[in-house]
Nucleic acid binder design. Structure first.
Length: 463
RNA sequence: GGCGCGGUGGCGGAGUGGCUACGCAGAGGCCUGCAAAGCCUUGAACACCGGUUCGAUUCCGGUCCGCGCCUCCA
């Protein structure tokens, strides 16, 4: 059995992971608010937790992992987008959801087991809010329902922030309907031009945090294994989820393990929609293959800050070229059955140490280039491909990887034209007419085609 | 002010109380008609100051610098 170690934000420790129930491992990850295209910062947790999902499936069996990633389709940012463009909210959210799914698929992510939408779970939220009111953790005031933070003794255990400091922290909104400055909204009224649902407190809509408490409870139960998201969600979002869920469910523990990925930076600055310095996944996919973007994301450990640069993307591309280059020379050789390198698994199992795992992948790739026997090659091919499978890369046919037209440099030459030029060049080489053969090669290079002669054939690739 | 993260060779980026990260780039070599790809070899680092230790980049304390969070954020 593979020993999986995970870092828990709650305890600030890396520990061996023991699921509550090995035949039903539960993971909840906060998904997108669907009002605009995803930027690469949004993609980071999706990719990181996709790798964890693949790893959990490998360790506990594909049928035994339940991965829930929500879609927030009711939010004031969506309302703002609607007011800006005049588009119907349904149109905005359904278009954005479609784009999100397409972008995430292009980045090589598996679909979660369940992708629940907030608007499909309003009754569950109302029920949970009613429960919180009835047990004294929440109250209604001026059509708002708020969670009363002083009513929960352990509030702040995840972020290590305490109530007094929060209030001193100045940015706390002391709204008239709040009994305590640290209280947060569970339900708020909607005007007639805002989306709303009927509730015991009038027509309104849920606050930001309640959906995740309601939906995780619906699909994973009161207590489950892993809850993930970006570091910026630790406070207030996850802290408030804990407060709502633990109080409503009467449990001490909500998620066993809290995992948070580090920020993604651009030019040393945190990237976020509010700062406006974001790069959309969609734009990036015009210039880079999804696997390149994905590998760039995995070159840094998930808890570290990641500075997004074109140099990083170039390095990711270069690594993929070398993996595919090793695989290409044995493209027609069948691989051995899936076999995972122990070193690779050890790296990935150690709190998803993807940089260490990539080191192993590079070693396997070099071993394959050096391998003498077909048996050794086939076995290494199996190891490389199964490692790639866990990371969600190396899914392309190696030949196609090198021949695919780079979106940056469009090649004017068709494959047929390239082949006939290569034929002409090889004829010249057979005649020892190296002046002509080098001329043809230079011309191809001008069109972005690089040739690789081997004993038997001449391979080519687009750069 | 509180909470938290980080400072590693030209660059990216792991890790470790004593020994090679790895990748990119550089140098030399093998292979090649020449290249390309690949392979081999190779130089180069652990912010600063103390402490613990036979020995610290790794542990402890302090200093400096950078960054994030403290109710919009993945």
């Amino acid at each position: 059995m593979i020993v999986l170690k995970l870092y828990n934000t709650k305890t600030r420790e890396k520990r061996i992971f023991h699921p509550i129930n090995e035949s039903s491992v539960g993971m909840y990850v906060c998904g997108p608010t669907v009002y605009d295209y995803s930027h690469i910062g949004n993609a980071r947790p999706v990719i990181i937790f996709d790798v964890l999902y693949r790893l959990l499936r490998k360790v506990y069996g594909e049928e035994n992992v339940n991965y829930v990633r929500n879609i927030t389709d009711v939010d004031d940012k969506i309302i703002a987008a609607h007011q800006d463009s005049g588009e119907d909210i349904d149109v905005i959210t359904s278009r954005t959801i479609k784009a999100f799914r397409s972008d995430m698929r292009d980045l090589g992510n598996l679909e979660p087991s369940i992708e629940p939408k907030a608007t499909d779970h309003i009754p569950q939220m109302i029920k949970m809010i009613e429960k919180l009111i009835s047990i004294g953790n929440a109250y209604q005031e001026q059509e708002h329902v708020c969670f009363n933070v002083p009513s929960m003794v352990n509030y702040g255990s995840l972020s290590k922030l305490n109530r007094e400091e929060l209030i001193v922290g100045a940015r706390v909104d002391i709204a008239p309907y709040k009994r305590d400055p640290a209280d947060f909204i569970l339900w708020k009224p909607s005007s007639s031009d805002q989306p709303g649902w009927n509730s015991p407190w009038g027509r309104g809509r849920p606050g930001w945090h309640i959906e995740c408490s309601a939906m995780s409870n619906e699909y994973l139960g009161a207590t489950f294994d892993i809850h993930g998201g970006g570091q910026d969600l630790i406070f207030p979002h996850h802290e408030n989820e804990i407060a709502q869920s633990c109080c409503a469910n009467g449990e001490d523990t909500f998620a066993q393990i809290w995992m948070h990925n580090g920020y993604l930076m651009v030019d040393g600055e945190k990237m976020s929609k509010s700062l406006g310095n974001f790069i959309t996944v969609r734009d990036l996919l015009h210039s880079y293959h999804g696997e390149t973007i994905r590998l760039c994301m995995l070159m840094t450990h998930y808890r570290q800050p990641l500075n997004w640069t074109s140099n990083g993307l170039a390095q990711a591309k270069s690594s993929l070229d070398s993996f595919y280059g090793a695989l290409r020379q044995i493209n027609d050789l069948p691989q051995f059955a899936d076999e995972l390198s122990e070193d690779f698994m050890a790296a990935l199992s150690d709190d998803i140490n993807t940089p260490e795992a990539l080191k192993v992948l590079h070693e396997l790739s070099r071993d394959l280039n050096k391998a003498k026997t077909e048996k050794a090659k086939a076995r290494l091919k199996g190891k490389i491909l199964s490692a790639g499978k866990l990371l969600g890369i190396l899914k392309c046919d190696p030949d196609n990887w090198f021949k695919s037209v780079s979106p940056n440099l469009k090649s004017d030459l068709s494959d047929d034209q390239i082949h006939s030029l290569i034929l002409a060049r090889n004829n010249a080489r057979d005649d020892k007419n190296f002046v002509l053969s080098d001329k043809i090669r230079d011309e191809l290079l001008q069109s972005g085609i690089v040739l690789e002669d081997s004993k038997s054939i001449t391979r080519w690739k687009r750069v």
